[in-house]
Amino acid sequence: MEIMRATGTDARRRAARPAERIAYATGLALIASGAFHLGVFGVDGGPWDGPVSWRKPVTFGLSFGLTLIALTWVTSYLQVGARLRNVLLVVFTADCVLEVGGITLQAWRGVPSHLNMETAFDTAVSMSLAVGGGVLVVLLTVFAIVAFRNRPDGPTGMPLAVRAGFAVLLVALASGAAMIARGVTLTRTGHQEAAYHSTAALKPLHGVSLHAVLVLPVLAWLMTRTSWSELTKNRVMYAAVSAYVAAVLATGTWAALTYET
């Protein structure tokens, strides 16, 4: 059975190589962009927080780059057709470029990237980022559904890691959607400045839950390099998942206590 699973996974990986190469290369480029803008911040200075800051191209470049690389790798363990996975990866890659590109453009222009309706161009950028965020939600939800409909492949601990990672990722998607909805509502009711600061309470929850889909599968992969028994590996993975859920609950509680209506 394990050999059959490994063979099936290898076949999907071979079929998806072109899309994977594009996704991995793009992910590295986005990470490089984030690192470059950290250097720009070091030279140019300015505030780290706030709606206009070099922080945004830094954190979004690094975060989207890592997420793209992680999703490309993790989805190779899903029981999904190669063609469908290729299409989803290509769209996801393009959407990541759109998000980071729009944010970076506005940072260089010295204006807010999200919730900015000051000019027609700023509105177009802001709305494209919002639409791109919606596309991300749909794509990642599809991957999550696949993960729970069919048991993922992989070594001991990997199926649990992939499923738990996608489950926690759904929390990130929900918190991200809540931030966008809250900000848009405030903007359209004439509270532009409040909109820029309305997302602060949810940012820790969003950030923590976003990367479970990378952290947990990496742990499962690292355990393949040990001589631990399958029982020990499963126990470690369950403990890791529990710890991550506790972190999500902690940041969620903080968000609920500090969220301003």
Rank of each mutant, 00 (worst) to 15 (best):
A220N: 02
L231R: 15
T156P: 14
A220I: 00
L160W: 13
A201C: 02
F143M: 08
A195Q: 00
L170N: 08
T187P: 08
M179G: 06
M223Q: 15
A174Y: 09
T232D: 14
H211L: 09
G183H: 01
V142Q: 01
A164F: 04
G154K: 09
V208N: 05
V215S: 11
K203A: 11
L205M: 12
G165W: 02
A144P: 02
R182C: 02
R225C: 08
T156N: 08
E230A: 13
G154E: 09
V218I: 13
V218A: 12
M179S: 07
G157C: 12
V213Q: 04
M223E: 14
A172W: 09
M179I: 04
V168G: 05
H191P: 00
M179W: 06
T199A: 12
V184I: 15
V184T: 14
G190P: 06
A195M: 03
L219V: 14
V208W: 05
K233R: 15
N234R: 12
S175W: 05
H206A: 03
E230Q: 12
T187Q: 15
S227W: 10
F143V: 00
R163I: 00
V208F: 05
R149V: 08
A147N: 13
E230D: 15
H197I: 00
A164Y: 03
L202V: 00
R149A: 10
F166H: 05
W221P: 00
R151A: 10
V184P: 06
R151K: 13
V162T: 10
N234K: 10
T185N: 13
S175Q: 03
L202F: 11
A178L: 15
E193T: 14
R188G: 10
V215M: 08
A167P: 03
G165H: 04
Q192Y: 09
A194L: 08
R182A: 08
A178E: 13
M179D: 04
L214M: 12
L186R: 04
D153G: 06
H206P: 02
L202G: 02
T232Q: 12
S198D: 07
H206N: 06
T187N: 14
L205K: 01
T156F: 05
L216C: 10
P152S: 02
A194H: 07
H191T: 01
S209H: 03
T199Y: 09
H211M: 05
W228T: 10
P159A: 07
G154I: 04
S175I: 01
M223R: 15
R225W: 12
M158P: 09
A147Q: 09
R225P: 01
A178Q: 13
G207I: 06
A164D: 00
V168N: 05
L160V: 10
L160Y: 08
L186W: 01
S229N: 04
H211N: 12
L160N: 08
R163K: 15
P159T: 08
F166M: 13
S175A: 15
W221G: 06
V146K: 06
L231W: 00
L173H: 02
A177M: 14
G157E: 11
A200F: 01
D153A: 13
T187K: 10
H211R: 05
T232M: 11
P217E: 00
M179N: 06
V213H: 02
P152M: 03
I180V: 15
P152T: 04
V142N: 01
